[in-house]
Design a protein around this nucleic acid. Structure first.
Lengths: 250, 250
DNA sequence: TATGGTATGATGGTATACCAAGATATTGGG
DNA sequence: CCCAATATCTTGGTATACCATCATACCATA
């Protein structure tokens, strides 16, 4: 059964539509539309690697798998296209976006700037229970490092940075970073599941944490840069191995 | 007659569809789809201010004005939503995105970093006829400054930065900057058409040009930062005036 | 074997119908 | 005369059917 078919929010939505206003506890009814659900599901399916890069996304099968109309699927694809997660091949239709090393380098560089700034601003301005929350996120990240479930590590990492971006007030930069992360998700999977470097990643995150907490903006930025340099180096190794292997397979 | 109804590419497309393969010089047939045309047209209509911020974008009238089906319009809106040019109000539909000063500040800060980096990289690495091309772009920009057509100034400015980003190889950052510029287009219009500051803008651009040409990366970055600081200061003045006026109107 | 035609499948584009939710107008009762 | 309940209109969301085009694979014939 397809990953897209898991019976969850989509079915809830549909049954809710039919039942309509049968029960009253509809307060706080977040008007989550079908599109939102499908978007979210396809986005995570791509990011988590259930679709291979370059794989075609054929409309009607997707409709069948998701149980929604073409309209919804097409609008979703349009949205993901704008996000850079999907590319449109003229007269052939959408495919999962491909990623070459040049693009990856650019993305790491942009992340370096945006994450570095957010961390620096954070170090200067944080207040309230921010330190506590960031510490908890770091602890949670540390906990995920052991069970080596890359998906958990990725989510914990995201959570860690989300706290930083939120505290710094850089919501737009956070949007951009998340979108860029989606595009290099394949590389993140590779680096996160790399057996030979769970420790360096953790030490970098700890360094970022400590620099922010001690209100050292320059050190915070430097720590972020070190973290991303490490990640990009690891990613490069994998991507080039992969490229070589692909070249050999031909 | 609506801005959207200008008879141009859209009609060409449609008649081309019917004529089909009557004449052979169809080589280099850029497969521009209806969606692409509608997207481009609506994007520029929003950016150039033909739709007011907050204005509702009602599907069926748009279909009538553009002469296309709801599918095309809806997919276009989805794309522009992902671009941040359009917001969806639950149960009310899409509106032209609103912009508050907090968001604008964030956007200026991100632009500062991305444009600064591109200029710095450019200064270090430019080659070929880049200097000549950038000089021509600067001259073109200077020429537009006189006739005070803000649209021309905006395009020339975009062209100037496009050359920088292209030469630096930062294509993804350029995408991001362009998208961000779309979101603050209203502010750019205000600042560009400000009668009291055609000169400062030009002098900043000249400073950027000279710093890059003399391969001084630090100076280039500083010049970009000065330029954006100036732009954001001007923008802030306008936006706050506007806010005050709006408050007074209530 | 090579050429050309055909069948198939996928996409882009269009039209239409239906229902739900909001907004507005209307009308009836106090 | 005012308030409230109802009716109507508009819009958004969804689903479905249809056509034209493009690409590809297959097949038959020279």
């Amino acid at each position: 059964m397809s990953i897209l078919l898991e019976a969850t929010a989509l079915d809830d939505y549909k049954s809710q539509m039919n039942i309509a206003k049968s029960n009253l506890p509809k307060i706080e009814h977040a008007p989550q539309t079908l599109r939102d659900i499908v978007q979210e599901r396809m986005r995570t399916a791509i990011i988590e690697g259930h679709f291979a890069p370059g794989e075609r996304l054929i409309e009607r099968p997707l409709c069948d798998q998701l149980g929604v109309s073409r309209t919804v699927v097409r609008e979703t694809i349009r949205f993901l296209e704008a996000e850079g997660l999907v590319e449109i091949i003229p007269n052939r239709g959408p495919i999962v976006a491909l990623l070459d090393w040049d693009q990856a380098v650019q993305i790491y560089e942009i992340r370096e700037q945006l994450e570095g700034s957010a961390a620096a601003v954070c170090a200067q301005r944080y207040s309230g229970d921010f330190a506590k929350r960031l510490g908890e996120a770091l602890a949670a990240l540390n906990a995920t490092m052991d069970d080596s479930e890359w998906i958990g590590v990725m989510r914990a990492t995201t959570r860690f940075y989300e706290i930083i971006f939120t505290e710094s007030g850089h919501s737009i930069a956070w949007d951009i970073v998340q979108r860029l992360n989606g595009r290099i998700s394949r590389l993140r999977v590779l680096t996160l599941s790399a057996k030979d470097r769970p420790k360096p990643g953790m030490s970098h995150m700890t360094a970022i944490f400590e620099a922010i907490i001690s209100r050292d903006a320059d050190a915070a930025r430097a720590a972020v840069e070190a973290h991303i340099l490490d990640a990009s180096t690891t990613a490069q190794r994998f991507l080039q191995d992969e490229t070589k292997k692909a070249a050999g397979d031909v």
